Simulated assay, not measured.
Amino acid sequence: MNENDTITAISTPYGAGGIGIIRISGEKAFEIAEKIFKGKKTIRHIKSHTINYGKIFDFKDGTVIDEVLLTKMDRPNTFTREDTIEINCHGGIVVLKKVLELVVREGARLAEPGEFTKRAFLNGRIDLAQAEAVIDLINAKTSRSSKIALEQLEGKLSIEIKEARDRLIGFIAHIEATLDYPEEDIDEITELEVYNGLEEIKNKLSILLSGFKKGRIIREGIKAVIIGRPNVGKSSLLNRLAGYNRAIVTDIPGTTRDIVEEYISIAGIPIRIIDTAGIRETKDEVERIGVEKTMNAIESADLVIMMVDAFAGFAKEDEEVLKYISNISGKKPVVLLNKIDLVEKE
């Protein structure tokens, strides 16, 4: 893989749609576009950052592949800071693949995953924090996580870190100048000034660091696992939280044998709800595998919700599950009583 190669990829999600975009970035981007695009103007005469109607041709056999809108963007005012072409095709899978194959045939290389962002980073368009924000913005599951990712992409975090770094460099430069050139008329910096300045920087960085865990939760969400004995209502809870029948619910114990997941949003925070197989001793091989998956899910969970059948009471199996969570995984579960409407009033 050569960083000077001209790269290309389908930039929209794979599948059928109204529009599909193919991006070309690199030194030969305009040259390749010139070979396959035919519009009112040639590529060399098209102004930067304008959209132009035309057709994509395979000039080997003269066939028209698609009617497109082509955008030409001159470096360095592009995402990668390289010459860039974006071809807006009709979003059919066949059309996109044909145009992509044509671009590759004319000299481009298929981009590696994340390579456009990598080039933006290597060419100084974005820093590492902003590069990480790109994928966070793409994967954002709520408007709140999207907003935080966009702020990071715009450089909010980078600016605060740069300010702290510049102040540290300033202190070092002032101290070295005072020590190396005592005969010069340089304002001396006192120990107290250095100490107070370093404390301010330390406190500012501590505030940024303390917000990491909160930011991770907003960005990645909370993994909440629902556990308990068979037939205590775990799947019913998942369905109620999801707002539709995501999991099969029956009166037969052991109905859920595999992990069932659903994403919901609470106050802008994505919650990954996981319904698990009921925990019990079983000779059924499939159900046993489901119980093992439940145990693994508990280990990686941020929140464990243990459901107890209030009508049947707190059974020995419930006690064993609770001991396992507390002693083995070290998690503190939220115990949820279900079926309290069936309990007779005393």
Rank of each mutant, 00 (worst) to 15 (best):
V232N: 06
E67K: 07
S210P: 00
I138Q: 06
I186Q: 13
T190Y: 10
D302I: 03
L241R: 01
T12F: 00
G278I: 05
Y181K: 00
N327M: 11
L192I: 15
R109I: 06
G211E: 15
A33I: 07
I46T: 06
E320T: 03
Y263W: 14
G20K: 02
I56P: 00
D127K: 03
L153Q: 05
E281H: 10
L336K: 05
T8L: 03
C89A: 12
F57T: 07
I161A: 07
K118Y: 02
R81Q: 14
L150N: 02
A312Q: 14
T71G: 12
G114D: 03
R240H: 03
K283R: 09
I252K: 11
H90K: 04
L179F: 03
V249R: 02
G330E: 13
K293A: 01
I259F: 02
I138A: 10
S329P: 02
V260Y: 02
T50H: 11
V225E: 12
G62N: 08
I340E: 11
I32A: 14
E200F: 04
T255W: 00
D258S: 02
G233C: 08
P13Y: 14
I226T: 13
Y53D: 09
E34W: 01
G107C: 08
G211A: 05
N77S: 08
H174L: 14
D258Y: 00
I227E: 14
F57Y: 15
T50K: 11
I126P: 00
T50Q: 04
F57A: 10
G107N: 04
A301Q: 04
G92H: 06
K162C: 05
I22Q: 08
P333I: 01
S11M: 10
Q130K: 11
S329V: 14
A16F: 13
H45E: 15
A129T: 05
A277V: 01
G228Y: 14
F116C: 03
R167P: 00
G17A: 15
F37H: 10
V95S: 10
S265Y: 01
D251P: 04
F57D: 13
T8V: 15
T80D: 02
L69P: 01
V225G: 04
D309E: 06
I218S: 06
E262F: 00
T12K: 01
K316S: 12
G155H: 06
T80Q: 06
G114K: 06
F30W: 14
S146H: 11
L150E: 08
Y181V: 04
S265D: 15
R280I: 09
D127Q: 12
Q152M: 02
N231M: 12
E193H: 05
E287W: 08
A16R: 11
I289S: 09
A9N: 09
D5S: 11
R75Y: 09
D318C: 03
I227W: 09
L238E: 09
L205V: 13
I325D: 12
K345L: 07
F79Q: 00
P76T: 05
G254E: 11
M73F: 14
I51Q: 02
G233D: 11
L179G: 00
K47R: 11
G211C: 00
E31W: 07
F59S: 04
D251N: 15
N4F: 08
N196Y: 08
A312K: 11
A131N: 01
E151L: 12
K38R: 04
I56W: 10
L70E: 07
L336V: 15
L303G: 04
L128T: 11
G313F: 10
K202L: 14
L237F: 05
G290E: 00
E154A: 09
K345G: 02
E27S: 07
E82N: 06
D61M: 04
S11D: 13
